[in-house]
Design a protein around this nucleic acid. Sequence first.
DNA 1: GCACAAACCGACCGATCGTTCGGTTTCCAG
DNA 2: CTGGAAACCGAACGATCGGTCGGTTTGTGC
Lengths: 220, 220
Amino acid sequence: MILADVPLPSDVSPSDDGHRRRYDTASLLDVAVQVFTERGYDGTSMGDLAHASGLSKSSLYHHFDSKEQLLRAALDRAVEPLFAVVAEPAAQSGRAIDRLEHVVRREVQVLVEQLPSVTLLLRVHGNTPTERWALERRREFDRIVADLVAQAAAEGDVRTDVQAGLVTRLLFGMINSLVEWYRPDEAGSGEARRGTSSRTVGADELADAVVRLAFDGLRR
Amino acid sequence: MILADVPLPSDVSPSDDGHRRRYDTASLLDVAVQVFTERGYDGTSMGDLAHASGLSKSSLYHHFDSKEQLLRAALDRAVEPLFAVVAEPAAQSGRAIDRLEHVVRREVQVLVEQLPSVTLLLRVHGNTPTERWALERRREFDRIVADLVAQAAAEGDVRTDVQAGLVTRLLFGMINSLVEWYRPDEAGSGEARRGTSSRTVGADELADAVVRLAFDGLRR
DNA sequence: GCACAAACCGACCGATCGTTCGGTTTCCAG
DNA sequence: CTGGAAACCGAACGATCGGTCGGTTTGTGC
């Protein structure tokens, strides 16, 4: 990735307490996922990860077998909770439109909770076996939700002048887009907020906004 | 990009008419943009582009100065028509809600017309000066539309229980998502359509669907 | 036919890529 | 204090990266 055009985010310092910083595999994955989402998987070198974590390149291989296995571990963090949502009881019984609303609301929460991993999941291209596995899981997920929308339409609760498949894609396009702009409220860090007038919005409030807009539209 | 996990799309053959295939800069850009969108900019090597175009790596440099300049040319194809839309008369005068609907509808059309370039634009990470320029243009565009939404809210035509900035992001998240799934109807090519029951939808029909869903919601 | 420019090519450059290797340091149980 | 495991390191590997070079082929105006 050429010369460093922009400083890496972490740039870990020796650490506060006298000891040398030590990583367990999970928290090292945190760092990797963050850098992956900022520079893209292909745009991130193992050297970048080394620099961001404060470790040497070779030390990373004590925790992970390969760069691709690192990606796989990151994607698992997103895929599992996403599928867990459609398996919840409230998504399994009741009127389809209510189940759909539940899925939408919970999906927003999962996206916010696992923002970096989901971002990664939504950006894979299919260049490697791992990426193609991820694409397949996404297709499977889409199928499940599309069935839900179709059922809600059959029950007369959803407009039928737009195809169910189209509704599903646009609906989840809207939800998924939040990985591109939503940044959680980093409360506690005394850092000054940037000069934006829009208040930082929480996950629940965000889910409300999505449900209102998606179900009832933006027109007053 | 490791070993070729998957065949490149074009894989140009010597060509039908006796002559050797010759490229002008524009049609070579077509090929590059297509491969960029399929494998990602960072995931595409100049060797990939050479293979996809049927040219040698060094020949590409007869048409372009660098890989990044190639990206810049591709992004221009998306940025210009996007900004042209908000400059149209119908986006400049009238009730804000009507101007907004016009922008949404036209934006969908531009996305469909310039699908590969816009896809590229929406996926830049900011790793290079060119990518950061693209991100800045996107921010500028968002600002213009957010003002439009705010004005429509002030005129009482848009719901006010969701912040204008939030509405804008979700609305355009929905629109932009179509680069991830919309594939134009390759009519004329006798190729058999894959086994999907959903009919291929045209740009106008797509714009209708977006406007209906965004403005009036999916509830019946 | 000839000349010239545009288009193209294989061979090669230094830099960077993901990964491996043979050790050293750190921590903690005994 | 000792031992062994876990964590870490610098140096180096072959492959691939974006890009350059000098020369050849190809189409076109004359």
